[in-house]
Design a protein around this nucleic acid. Structure first.
Length: 262
DNA sequence: AGTACCACCTGACGGC
DNA sequence: TGCCGTCAGGTGGTAC
């Protein structure tokens, strides 16, 4: 699930709790998301402390903790963040809970346990340590063009490379390229300025609209590729047929008619 | 530098 | 019904 739009939805959900919000107690139901962070360190960092502000960089959500430091949430493939009342039933696969002073609870749910939690001092050092590129929505057209021209290899790989651009994954890279009518394997460096401009425009449009619709696939336009990710499905533009190919072991969907090989 | 492949996890689905 | 392979919106390590 979680690419930039999903994580932005989680961020807004956390903001809507009403910050600052005091953490009454941390409850870890499954250690595996903590990785090298101990329960004790997490509890010490959060118990009795207030969450004061949220930031998002790419697919990472960072929450400032009063005093110092930030809590980092990464959602892997199946992670999500919920804010629930005390009497709400705990969803399956809930891994960590932050019980707040007002009696409500933030729940980190992650079926496949590929997400993780971490602590860091500040956003900039976290971004540097983890070699993350600029956030996808912060990139200007000129910056994106320069970045694409500096790469060897295909444009989809470039869009998905978190060290180049942070926030775009398999689903939304397919959508951006479908909307921009660019073949996923088009040579990034060989794309002319007009084409790069189209990718930039669609990158912003796709991600922003997805955020507006709360990254809910059922609320996204039927004309998008996203609801038609099936080999042989009719292209939602009406002409071609959606095809599936492999790239680095992942399924890539595109329309050969709309997105011809250059 | 880019790409392929495996590993980390769990669950859903289709075929037999 | 049960078993098995495959696949899933991510990422890190490794090898070419």
């Amino acid at each position: 699930m979680p690419e930039l739009p999903d994580v932005e939805v989680f961020r807004r959900r956390l903001d809507a709790v009403g910050l600052p919000a005091e953490v009454h107690r941390v409850r870890v139901l499954d250690d595996s998301l903590l990785r090298d962070l101990s329960r004790q360190r997490l509890a010490k960092a959060l118990n009795g402390q207030a969450l004061t502000a949220t930031r998002r960089h790419g697919k990472h959500l960072l929450v400032a903790v009063k005093g110092d430091g930030m809590l980092v949430l990464h959602f892997g493939m199946t992670g999500s963040l919920l804010h629930q009342t005390a009497d709400a039933e705990r969803p399956a696969h809930t891994r960590v809970e932050l019980w707040l002073a007002d009696g409500s609870v933030l729940r980190f749910v992650d079926q496949r346990k590929l997400g993780h939690l971490a602590l860091t001092d500040d956003l900039d050092s976290y971004v540097a340590e983890h070699d993350l590129g600029p956030d996808a929505l912060q990139l200007s057209r000129a910056e994106l063009t320069e970045l694409l021209h500096a790469r060897r290899g295909g444009v989809k790989s470039a869009l998905m490379d978190q060290a180049a651009i942070a926030g775009i994954g398999n689903i939304y890279s397919d959508e951006i390229l479908f909307q921009a009518r660019v073949h996923p394997k088009a040579d990034a460096a060989g794309m002319d300025d007009r084409t790069c401009g189209r990718v930039h425009r669609q990158l912003r449009r796709v991600l922003q609209l997805a955020v507006e619709r709360e990254a809910d696939p059922t609320r996204l336009p039927r004309t998008w590729l996203l609801p038609h990710r099936e080999d042989g499905a009719p292209c939602p533009r009406g002409e071609g047929t959606v095809r599936k190919m492999q790239l680095g072991g992942r399924g890539v969907f595109y329309c050969p008619t709309c997105q011809p090989r250059p």
